[in-house]
């Protein structure tokens, strides 16, 4: 069986270097270019018509804008709207990387920890820069939760320091691990699709069973009508058994399709989590201690 981790291997197509830095082209770089071109093309096409009553593409783009606007207003308040371009770019880019990675033969850029770690470090250092530029030295107060008694400070400051430093790590690892795990499961299932042994039976038997299967599917209503619930149960038991004797690989096939659907959902939810945590961290930097009173 093929190594299920082989979809994550990168081999450069073209070797390039700039001032000693390796900038070779590989699948991940090309995929990012495709994502950027696709997103830019779609959103520019959606934005040019500007109808009062939107068509399909424009209403999708309006849905996206409303969604991200609501996310920012919930977590950061009105002051956060200046980060709208940043957060929406991040969301759309990660979402399209995740979704396009599900197309067979393409590459999931977000399954490389380098990519997610650079995003996470950028977001986190941005929140620190924003915090220091808005609050000055008082921003160090983020290490002291509001209402801490003075004798607790030697304990609380290290704990808060660790919990702050854990933020970029959890941000990067979450996206990377979700993408890698899902694609590994898919690769294992598709590997089973190739390597699972057939049930040995003569071809004539298989052809005969195939006709029985067709008859069973066509006659389903009449079987249920004449034999009632017993007939229905029998029908549901017989179909997979017959199918397995003819072609056992229907099992990994069906499961891999179901997992693919789950992966589409995970692509959405991970892009959403990444961008909402970006909002939360930036919001912490904007409202120093403000969030704990506003939380419900």
């Amino acid at each position: 069986m093929e190594n299920p981790l082989h979809p994550f291997e990168l081999h450069p197509f073209v070797h390039l270097s700039l001032l000693g830095v390796d900038i070779s082209l590989n699948k991940a770089v090309l995929m990012m270019w495709v994502v950027v071109a696709l997103v830019a093309g779609l959103l520019i096409a959606a934005g040019t018509s500007r109808r009062l009553v939107p068509r399909k593409l424009q209403s999708l783009a309006e849905l996206l804008v409303e969604f991200i606007r609501g996310m920012i207003l919930d977590t950061m308040g009105r002051e956060g709207m200046r980060f709208f371009p940043f957060v929406s770019t991040l969301f759309v880019f990660i979402l399209f990387c995740n979704l396009l990675g599900l197309v067979p033969g393409s590459f999931t850029v977000t399954s490389q920890i380098v990519v997610t770690a650079v995003f996470a470090l950028f977001v986190y250092s941005m929140s620190i820069v924003v915090g220091f530029s808005l609050h000055g030295v008082k921003f160090l107060g983020i290490l002291v939760p509001s209402g801490t008694p003075a004798w607790m400070l030697p304990l609380m400051i290290p704990i808060e320091l660790v919990s702050q430093l854990a933020r970029p790590l959890s941000l990067a690892v979450r996206l990377f691990a979700n993408m890698t795990a899902g694609h590994t499961v898919l690769a294992v299932l598709f590997g089973m699709l190739v390597s699972m042994p057939f049930i040995p039976a003569p071809l004539a038997v298989k052809v005969g069973l195939f006709f029985v299967l067709v008859v069973l599917i066509v006659m389903r209503r009449r079987i249920v009508a004449s034999a009632g619930i017993v007939g229905l149960i029998l029908w549901w038991c017989l179909i997979p058994v017959l199918l397995s004797i003819i072609w056992i690989r229907w099992l990994p096939f069906v499961v891999s399709i179901a997992i693919n659907g789950l992966e589409v959902f995970i692509a959405f939810i991970q892009a959403y989590i990444f961008s909402i945590l970006t909002c939360v961290y930036l919001g912490d930097a904007i409202h120093l201690h403000g969030h704990e009173e506003r939380a419900h």
């Binding site: 660790v162 919990s163 430093l165 854990a166 933020r167 790590l169 959890s170 690892v173 979450r174 691990a177």
Partner: peptide, 10 residues
Amino acid sequence: TEMLAALIVG
């Protein structure tokens, strides 16, 4: 992930 990351960083 949140709990694991804090543990690793600590």
